[in-house]
Amino acid sequence: MSHRTTGPLAAAATIAAMLIHQAPAAAQATITIDGSSTVFPIAEAVAEEFQRANRNVRVTVGISGTGGGFKKFCRGETQMQNASRPILQAEMEECRRAGVRYVELPIAFDAITVVVSPRNRFVECLTVAELRRVWEPAAQGRITNWNQVRQGFPDARLTLYGPGADSGTFDYFTEAVVGRAKASRGDYTASEDDNVLVQGVARDPNALGYIPFSYVASHADTLRTVAVDGGRGCVRPSAETVEDGTYSPLSRPLFLYVNLQALDRPEVRGIAEFYLSPAGRNLIREVRYVPLPEQAYEIGLRRIRERIAGTGYGGQPEVGMPIVEVLRHDPRE
C-alpha cells in the first residue's frame, strides 16, 4: 500500500527534477499575435491560412483587448498587436521605455453601427448631435425617454445597450460622438460580449445600441441599422459608404502593429505582408470587414520594406480623418 501512495509523490519529484535541468527552450518559429477582439476574426483567418502555407511556422492569436494587448506588446511579449484604435500617448511611452519599436499598419475598416429592434418603426436616421444628447455623461438619469431625443418621437422609455469600458469600440464611439474618449453615461446595459448586445436590442422595441458592423451583417434579420447624419445627410453603413468615407464619423480603421525587431525574422515579415496582400484582402471580406483603399496597402508594404517605425496619429484618437490622409503623414515615434 505504501507503494501506491508514494507513487504520485515520486512522480512529482521526478518531474520537478527534470524541469530544473530543462530550462525553457527557445520556441521554434512561433509568431505571437494578441490584442483586440474586434480584429480577432481577421487575425484568425490570416493565421490559419498562413500556417497552411508555411507548415514549419506556429502562429498563436490571443484576445486581450486593444489596451491589454498593448501592455504585452510594449513589454516585448508579443510580436504583433491587433488594435481597433491607434496607439495612445501612454502606450507609446510604455513602448519607448521598454525599447520596443513598432511599425503601424492599417489593415481594414470597421463601422460602428447604431441599431434598433426591427419592431421600432420610428427611427430612420439620427444626427451625431442627437446621439451625443443620448450618450454624453450629462444624459445619465436625465434622457430616459425617446421623446427627449427628438421632438415627434413617441413617448416611450429609452433603453440603451453598448460595449463596456474596456472595448475599443467604446473608446472610438465616445470619441466620435461625445468628443472625448471614454466619456459616456453609465446607466446603460454594458457588455464586452457583442452578442449580448445583439440579443438585448433585438428583443426590446425601445432599445438603442451600437455594435461593430460585423455583428450587424450576421444578424440582418434581427436588427435594423440606423443611418447616421454626420453633417452631410443621412448615411447608412455599408461596404460602399465605409470605403468611400461617407459613413462618417463612425467608420474606423483597424490596425496591426508589428514589433520592428521581430520584423527581421522572415516568418514575421511574411505574415505581415500576407495581411496586406490581395489574398489577405479576400480574408478580410470573408470575415465581414471592409478592405481599405488600395493605396493604403501599398503604403503599408512600403513601411514594412523600409522599416518605417512609429504611428501616424501622434497618440491622439483621431476621428473621421480619411485613412489615406493619415497615411500620407510620416509616422513618428
Binding site: E44, V61, G62, S64
Partner: peptide, 8 residues
C-alpha cells in the same frame, strides 16, 4: 494568458 487561436 491562455490563447484563443492555436493551431498546433
Amino acid at each position: 494568458g491562455a490563447l484563443t487561436f492555436i493551431a498546433f
